[in-house]
Nucleic acid binder design. Sequence first.
DNA 1: ACAAAAGTGTTAGCCGTACACCCATGT
DNA 2: ACATGGGTGTACGGCTAACACTTTTGT
Lengths: 229, 229
Amino acid sequence: MQYEKYHELKRHIAVDCVIFGYEQEQLKLLVFKRAIEPAKGKWSLIGGWVKEEESAEDAARRVLVNLTGLQDVFMEQVQTFSKPDRDPGGNVVTVSFYALVKVEKYSNQLIHEFGAQWINISELPQLIFDHDEMVARALEKLRLKSRYDLIGRQLLPEKFTITSLRNLYNEIFQKQFDPGNFRKKVLSLKVLERQEEKDMSESRKGAFYYKFNDIEEEGFNDPIFKRSF
Amino acid sequence: MQYEKYHELKRHIAVDCVIFGYEQEQLKLLVFKRAIEPAKGKWSLIGGWVKEEESAEDAARRVLVNLTGLQDVFMEQVQTFSKPDRDPGGNVVTVSFYALVKVEKYSNQLIHEFGAQWINISELPQLIFDHDEMVARALEKLRLKSRYDLIGRQLLPEKFTITSLRNLYNEIFQKQFDPGNFRKKVLSLKVLERQEEKDMSESRKGAFYYKFNDIEEEGFNDPIFKRSF
DNA sequence: ACAAAAGTGTTAGCCGTACACCCATGT
DNA sequence: ACATGGGTGTACGGCTAACACTTTTGT
């Protein structure tokens, strides 16, 4: 498990996690300043070794739980990277995952402990090895999912406004959705429930909070958003 | 490389290939009758070990070249399977790929040599281990690709009729596309070139052959087929 | 009264679907 | 002439996109 040693061994299997969060109307990624060699001080994703008695999915979940304490985080496999020379420290095959977490639930203490930081998706520094490509592929996958599912359940707080949800989609697709049309579209999907309470912080009139309802976690057959972005 | 031995060792990395082909207006999969234990006589996908000095992509390509002699086959990573007990013969992490090949180019001799057989996608026997799931996931990925790309370049012969192409889509989505609408749709994409020659075998009138043109291999931004199937 | 965001309504145009209809030709 | 698949035309309906318009309320 010690990084300094692994180059002596033959080939290892690891996971890396592309962790998305949504905070202050921005889509962010949790990145880490490496405390150890190689590439000490450089930015990277968080990862870990896959133990012999677990699957890559188990390992990724373990890494995430260890980092955040959160048990039921949405997570999906993205791609496996296996070029023998992709990690200068040794021959490492890495299965990458992306995760969607509610930033609010994070303990800031944990984050500092790991040298982690939430960074806006459009202001990312260069990451080590092929981690940039992992992020790019994860973002592609997130966009694809967002097109067929109404995501937000895993990223937004329990209660949120339609405007917040729209902003999330604006961030994901780097595009301004029309407020009126977006509202009608998502409400027509019948997965949101309006609450009594209003958010008064953003306007005089106030905006109703919504919650995701419990039924039908599964995606729709048709794309929600059919046009190119 | 010997299967009988690998259970003694700790953990291996392998690839498996979901090889799609199109023959006699049917979407088929190349499956193999295992000649060795475990699961001798059962059907499976073709696979191979990933050598220490190569990537999973390299390994998959090597397996395919070895099997077919074809160099430039379309191939894409699907998913990695890593449950420690997924292969009763040992702890094997497998990266699965799908490939699209022109059946016509295959040497039948090679196929028999490997105990292989083209089987219609809807008549597949049960496959060993988690190979059924690999096929299911590969098919999902193929469907997704077919929705955004006009697929067929890699599956159809050089010259083909619109009806053949439509049949391919019928097979992929298990749905009957409307002949007229399908024709207009694919021709509007401007990626097909009509040939002088006609195929006279299917109708009195004859159907023009088409070829894919050379420009723009990349996909479209919008889904070609937007509705559910 | 005004501003500013929330929310509703309206319209035009595009596109998918269904289906009618013509075409070419071997028997 | 007719049957058959190839190929074209048309009309309806649904949906998207653009944007005008109304609502609410603190200042």
